[in-house]
């Protein structure tokens, strides 16, 4: 929606040139021109959310997805844009403790929410156990899907611990087991074109403390 770097977005440029054209066309009736420019500007809305523990306040074009907010406005580029349609899982982040596709939700819908991205899970000097396990087991090749895979993997273990059933849970009356079968099924919304799946499963099993 906006350019990836620099303080001036493409939209700002378009808005400025639209206002300029309106002023040129109206030959000096400046207030009318500005009113026209405002009327044609895309609607905005304010939103406050906590991202990786830090309170943020933003006024955004209403169309801005949570993904674009993280990447373009907060410069948290760890979260990746893959398909931008909820099919690949590269944009997975954790909101209020639950993993979601950040590409399929508007930032303005997250007033008061707590968002955790890959940057909030661990740091280079202090990796989250899931990050360390991905490194140890080569849970990636190109690495593009990895932030989404790791956010998803962390949340998957919590979902199993919370007793949420899945498609492969044999007895839905009982709590699901912490098994690689359960983990693999629950990770189906995260696609890895390099095919690192078996190593991702090993990394998850290690963090869960079970046999891969």
């Amino acid at each position: 929606m906006t350019q990836g770097c620099g303080a001036i977005s493409r939209r700002d440029v378009l808005k400025t040139s639209a206002a300029g054209a309106a002023i040129a066309g109206s030959l000096g009736t400046g207030s009318v021109a500005l009113a026209q420019a405002d009327a044609s500007a895309p609607p905005t809305a304010a939103v406050r959310m906590k991202v990786n523990g830090k309170q943020t306040s933003l006024t955004l074009d209403t169309r801005t997805t949570l993904l674009d907010t993280l990447r373009e406005h907060l410069k948290l580029t760890g979260t990746k844009k893959g398909c931008d349609h909820g099919q690949c899982g590269a944009c997975t982040v954790i909101v209020n403790g639950r993993r979601i596709n950040s590409c399929l939700t508007l930032a303005v819908m997250h007033e008061g929410d707590e968002v955790t991205t890959i940057e909030g899970l661990g740091t280079v000097g202090d990796l989250h156990p899931m990050q360390a396990a991905f490194v140890e087991h080569d849970g990636y090749q190109c690495g593009y899907c990895t932030p989404g895979q790791i956010c998803s993997a962390v949340a998957v273990l919590e979902e199993i611990r919370a007793g949420i059933p899945s498609h492969v849970t044999e007895d839905i009356g009982a709590a699901p087991g912490m098994t690689t079968l359960e983990m693999r099924e629950r990770m189906s919304g995260n696609i890895c074109r390099c095919g690192a799946y078996s190593n991702i499963a090993e990394a998850m099993a290690q963090v869960a403390g079970v046999e891969a």
């Binding site: 993993r99 059933p165 009356g173 990770m187 919304g189």
Partner: peptide
């Protein structure tokens, strides 16, 4: 809805259908 104890006990077909659909991320939303 899929995880609700009463749904799992008395309306298992509904839990089964829900967990057969979409992905974990989408079902959360």
């Amino acid at each position: 809805l899929a995880a609700d104890r009463r749904v799992r006990k008395d309306y298992g077909v509904l839990t089964r259908a829900l967990v057969a659909g979409a992905s974990g991320q989408l079902r959360n939303k």
